Simulated assay, not measured.
Amino acid sequence: MNSTHTSSSVPVLTIDGPSGSGKGTISRRVADRLGWHYLDSGALYRAIGVAAGWADVDLADSSAVVRCTFDTEIGFRDAPNGELRVLVDGIDATDELRTETAGAAASAIAAIPEVRSALKERQRAFRQPPGLVADGRDMGTVIFPDAAHKVFLTASAEERAERRYKQLMEKGVSVTLAGLLREILARDARDAQRAVAPLRPAEDAVRIDTTGLGIDEVVDRVLALLPAR
């Protein structure tokens, strides 16, 4: 890989935030508008979680999870409808990645320092011209601390649970709003309290509260932070 691809000459916009803050949808739309590459860092952790599940790996066994991280091939491709599909060891696991089980596994795996270290270079390799929009929980603080543009999206836990509820019900997944709210609050606490790369805004990040805002409105606010093109 050409060294200029990972240099600060390639602009990066990081969009971090808790589960359900809208960062995935917003990041993808912003990347499309800019014509930049897109990194869904959470999908990498979810993919490892799915692979571990397929291999019956005990998530409490950190050394086994680390081995699984190195052994798992993760790929991305665009579907004809423009949707980003995620391949785990050559198998399209996109729908499985979106389950609450995969999300909980990703959160547990993300607390293992060796896993975060192993995935760091994989994530940084996405920094390719003409630019990158990276969404996750530690994009602005750990993976791309030198990014010129950083955003931290938030929303009330209640609104985030409602958004997730609607998403899952549309997919025919049976869940309860109260259960989702409990899971989101538990995940927030886990992500914020972990020893390695806890969920927090970068000091130079612009915070945007998406509670009550439409997708287009948030996208416009994010794009307004970048220099005119």
Rank of each mutant, 00 (worst) to 15 (best):
H37I: 07
R200T: 12
G20I: 08
Y165P: 03
K171P: 00
S41I: 10
G20L: 01
A197L: 12
R221K: 10
D95K: 14
L39N: 03
P129L: 09
I215S: 07
G22A: 13
H149R: 11
N2C: 04
A148M: 12
G20P: 06
V173D: 00
M139L: 12
I112F: 07
D188Q: 06
R124Q: 14
Y165E: 05
A155N: 11
V206Y: 06
G136T: 13
A189S: 11
V196W: 01
G103H: 01
E114S: 06
A157E: 10
A105R: 11
A64V: 08
R124M: 09
G35D: 04
A195R: 12
G24Y: 00
G212H: 07
L84H: 05
G131N: 09
G131Q: 03
W36T: 09
T211E: 02
A108H: 09
S41L: 08
R164G: 02
S19D: 05
E170W: 01
R122L: 12
D89Q: 06
V12M: 07
R77P: 01
F126K: 13
I215R: 02
S156K: 06
V12K: 07
A161Y: 05
G90Q: 09
S9R: 12
A147S: 13
T154Y: 07
A125D: 10
I143E: 03
F144C: 10
A148K: 15
A125N: 11
G35E: 05
I208P: 06
A195V: 15
